[in-house]
Design a binder for these strands. Structure first.
Lengths: 366, 366
DNA sequence: GTAGGTTTGGCAACCGGTTGACAGAATAGG
DNA sequence: CCTATTCTGTCAACCGGTTGCCAAACCTAC
């Protein structure tokens, strides 16, 4: 009787002869490898095909290295035994796991779905498995997660890293790293080109007659939040718009709601939110406080997440092709994509902007 | 020069002496393990602490087995070398990978976020890593994905399986399997208790005065779709409501939109959709065709996904605690949860239902 | 002081592949 | 026909841990 991962496994060998009955007792005994079929190995094939295991290995992984006749015999034996190569056994000597890691701040944050999906697809296409970990917006947890998956992956994508540049460089010394929405000297990254979307958005607000606008920022640790702010600031200055920064805030619906009073107090007629989640939260809070968007306040988000067009009014937002970002990050990791181009953003014009209202928002501060 | 996963790696050994310069050349050479720091092993520790590697292994994984003094010396050496156990090397002899697989139909389907998050959390808490794979609603791809991850996981959660009972049983012979929203003889599963939510929803429609309602079904291969239909049918019959089945449909926004004409043709005043995505699609299509929800048509969804309350009107839906389902599936896999209770559903009453309208929907068929 | 029991740590086999080196067979070239 | 190549398959080491078995060292108690 031995310990297995803290779960004591008992009655290891009773009733071994009866394999067909699925007793309740067995059903509740977890991760019990003992009585399950174990997979065929190259040794089984070797015995069946009457060759040396190394020949099997070569026949299967280096077609042409071995005599066609023999290779066929081996392949037939492999098929007969329903052989699958054991990725773990293969990874040990070669160091290649055919697994990639993806660490994101929050799996359930719809902002990241695109990244996850794109990365998963690109990985699957190349025969790689993707392991997704969550850092919950915490740099410390992110470091732990990275350390945990690092030994068993061939490379790592940091989707929304909250680590310091230094920590990221240290990781990059151990395994190939690709960053999304973050730039660190000497580490590869996939970045958005904010100009097309931001330019158009700011011009749009200017054309509507806005004079004083705000940027509702995300977490202080977010590199991309600062970058979005700077991009907006540059265009705003050029257009003679006054830009305030409100924040930092939590990049969630709640964070957006919570920002309402600061927004109202800031006396602005339009707000760029760090992301759509905050934008939607702000819109809803604003509406509930009697200041309907866009009449009383114009709101523009970032990302164009799932559901951004469900809202009333539908959210105007600056879209980054996130699935493309995820896909490209993985392809870069696999060396299939050398392009350094930034991914163009795009303004998705919907209904959350309007000319500034005569009535000020101030009255709505509770 | 050898092949690595289809990517030819060249210039393998030039400039090996210069480790500090991060040339562009190096940056674009992917998955190149060669010149990176390689992690410390128990052999390094053994040398440093002047003991046998097996002693190191014991000191680290079986506290108490070794003399306290020696153990401390070993731990110190391990810390000094910043040692992390290599999960792959550990998995090979033990067969335990501390990794669990989760296969879902579609990662970006918000219905499944809850499952993913719950599963990830439960796994992380117990020190397990979760590998998520996507089957894209295809049984064949699901089988491939399962086969692919099976050798490297200790167990598998099938989130939205499209496999046959027989295929599932075969998988269950190889590794522990837990199903969500699906029941197969002899395989563990986590199921919702549809009664509380469905009862309340049907009663609610009855009370509003509806007489003839429809169930907009999901994919034919979806076990849970049939189950939802049956649960509704049972209560509808009891309440004297006429229930039509429309479908099968694709469980997406588009699928919901596409169903509109059938719904209109069916001449019903209320619709249960297989899931929220379809419900939202239907609502929007309906509104765009001039038949506003809920005035012209009442709609009730399933799941209460992210964004279900963003819509106009906000969607009334039957919520299943999906993160709890994901969590419980993993805990069951790990043998930490023997409870067989079904997860109670709950009616989330919002704004997409109203008394049946006098005007029929028929006129809206295009 | 010694028989008996318990710690403690080392040895070596093993998990399931991969791969460099090599020998014998087959083929080519002169 | 003999030597030089090329082909083909085997041997054995290795990846980095885990673990059964054993012997030496250490206690304990009589």
């Amino acid at each position: 009787m031995r310990e297995e991962g803290g779960v004591a496994v008992m009655k290891d060998d009773e009733a071994m002869e009866d394999d067909t009955v699925m007793t309740d007792d067995q059903a509740t005994r977890p991760l019990d490898r003992a009585r399950r079929k174990s997979a065929a190995t190259i040794y089984d094939i070797a015995r069946l095909a009457e060759v040396n295991p190394s020949t099997v290995s070569r026949a299967l992984s280096q077609p042409g290295r071995i005599n066609v006749k023999t290779e066929e015999r081996i392949r037939a034996a492999a098929k007969q035994l329903n052989y699958r190569v054991n990725p773990i056994a293969r990874a040990l000597p070669t160091g290649r796991t055919y697994t990639l890691g993806l660490i994101v701040a929050d799996i359930t944050n719809p902002v990241l779905f695109g990244i996850v999906r794109g990365a998963e697809q690109a990985a699957a296409v190349s025969g790689y498995t993707l392991v997704i970990s969550e850092s919950q917006e915490s740099g410390e947890r992110e470091a732990t997660a990275a350390e945990r998956v690092l030994p068993s992956v061939d490379g790592l994508v940091l989707g929304t890293s909250r680590l310091s540049d230094e920590e990221i460089r240290e990781l990059a010394e151990l395994k190939p790293i690709v960053l999304i929405n973050r730039e660190v000297e000497g580490v590869q990254s996939v970045l958005p080109d904010l100009h097309p979307g931001v330019d158009k958005a700011v011009h749009h607000l200017h054309a509507l007659g806005h004079k004083r606008i705000a940027y509702l920022s995300g977490p202080t640790t977010s590199w991309i939040s600062r970058r979005r702010r700077d991009a907006i600031a540059a265009v705003a200055a050029e257009q003679g718009l006054e830009l305030l920064e409100i924040g930092p805030g939590t990049p969630t619906l709640e964070g957006g709601r919570a920002s309402f009073s600061s927004v109202a107090a800031a006396d602005v007629s339009a707000v760029f939110a760090y992301n759509d989640l905050m934008a939607i939260g702000l819109m809803r809070e604003s509406a509930e406080r009697g200041a309907a968007v866009p009449a009383a306040l114009s709101v523009i988000g970032f990302d164009d997440i799932f559901g951004a067009d469900f809202t009333t009014p539908p959210l105007t937002t600056i879209r980054t092709p996130l699935d493309e970002a995820g896909r490209r990050a993985v392809r870069t990791l696999l060396g299939q994509d050398a392009s350094r181009d930034e991914l163009p953003t795009e303004l998705i014009m919907r209904g959350s902007t309007a000319p500034p209202s005569a009535t000020r928002l101030r009255g709505h501060i509770s």
